[in-house]
Design a protein around this nucleic acid. Structure first.
Lengths: 239, 239
DNA sequence: ATTTGACCAGAAATATAAAATCAGTCATCT
DNA sequence: AGATGACTGATTTTATATTTCTGGTCAAAT
């Protein structure tokens, strides 16, 4: 721990991520973040003009981590271009990032007053598979086209919502492994929405391009140069 | 309105249902309920010893309404015994009853302090398709048996959760019709979880028996003798 | 025998003041 | 320059007093 490879802003964001994901925006002070990152409070204000801007940068940082994770999962999957796998990886990448989950479901315990001051819509609006991507999948013959793209997007939103919140609101006695649930969702999407014989490889490439565009949206967040952000392998199943 | 066919306790419960669904348990006073029902406060205490007991009766009343509605939908559907339709009707019956929805997702804005004093688990635990029913469906050859019943139940819970909450947490720009979403869910379940060639009629009969058992659990709530409770045709799609 | 609504005690909401916390600054140190 | 942390005013939290509200009762009315 004597030499942290991450740049200072990245260390601050990582510290903020840990604290905010646990205590929420309101209960996390700039002092907390600074000492967690091993710097002084002044150092934080050398990077960002205020707490709101830091939190803005944090969300962009986490979004990039999540998208990087998502991209990795798709690339590693030979059938990653199929709609069911695309959605499955989206669910898992989302699930692996508590802060983006909180953002997605607008968890006011985490977002606190920030949700009132800032516009969180721009993050959640094109978070999962958007209407355009779904249309693309239909064009590539990977998704049935006798169902409106808006309906598919809505359905995907519903399942993602439930997927994220089920642990928090329903402490069920028998919680299956995360992988098991993800497989069941995949099977449902594959069986009910996918189309046979589409060009999976083309679909993957097309979607990776969409992901790249989304990544660009969040700009070069200060201090994410070292590594991909390390968002992988954070999958605990229970709630 | 000069002669209400409902008995007094039923009128009180119906009034309570309207008020509690809108204002929540905490903000609905016994006086409010009494005047909404057109009786005095004393009359309420002639039926139930206290507010908690009234609310208990209200939940049982609404549960019976929802189950009656559910039963009606299944009976009216020639293919109502298939797992996808069974689940679809469950979603729609659930969606049509705001109070049971609130109970299902433990909406503290509606349940208020009641959730702390009373055990709401006993309602939600066997609300939707339970593990036993799912096993039954597998035995009847209507559901693939290469997936654990617990996983199916969990998946159904996830989708129901998202289905209920999507309107509240995500004011999307393009909200499809309720029927359209329900059909998409049906298609997914049918394509991904159902099995070809099971005995649909037997499945329906078996499940109707389960429903009857559930209904019995909630006993003869005072004042539900007239009609089935009138839970049908209350489907607005938006949130 | 039913039903009512004024009444009461305790709970909840509101108001006010005192204490603690925190976002942001900047003189100082390295 | 680069970084720090004591300092400050505004905000939040805590504590306390006061008022309003509401669950439950019961003598009186129907």
């Amino acid at each position: 721990m004597d030499k942290d490879p991450l740049s200072r802003p990245a260390r601050i964001l990582a510290a903020a991520s840990r604290l905010v994901a646990h205590y929420g925006f309101n209960k996390t002070t700039v002092d907390d973040i600074a000492s967690e990152a091993g710097v002084s409070k002044g150092a934080v204000y050398l990077e960002w003009p205020g707490k709101d801007e830091l939190f803005d940068a944090l969300l962009a940082y986490e979004m990039k981590r999540m998208l990087t994770d998502y991209r990795g999962r798709i690339e590693a999957d030979p059938e990653g271009g199929r709609i069911a796998n695309l959605y499955r990886h989206a669910l898992l990448a989302l699930h692996a990032n508590p802060l983006i989950c909180a953002l997605y479901v607008r968890d006011s315990r985490i977002l606190g007053d920030f949700v009132r001051r800032q516009d969180v819509e721009r993050y959640t609006s094109r978070l999962l598979l958007g209407n355009e991507s779904i249309r693309q999948m239909q064009a590539a013959g990977l998704l049935r086209d006798d169902i409106r793209p808006e309906t598919v997007a809505y359905l995907f939103t519903i399942i993602a919502l439930g997927f994220i919140q089920v642990g928090a609101v329903l402490p069920m006695q028998d919680v299956p492994q995360l992988e098991e649930v993800a497989q069941a969702v995949t099977r449902m999407v594959e069986g009910g929405l996918a189309r046979e014989g589409g060009d999976s490889a083309a679909g993957k490439q097309a979607f990776l391009k969409v992901l790249d565009l989304m990544m660009e949206q969040y700009g070069a967040v200060t201090g994410t140069e070292s590594g991909n952000g390390g968002a992988e392998s954070k999958e605990n199943s229970g709630g």
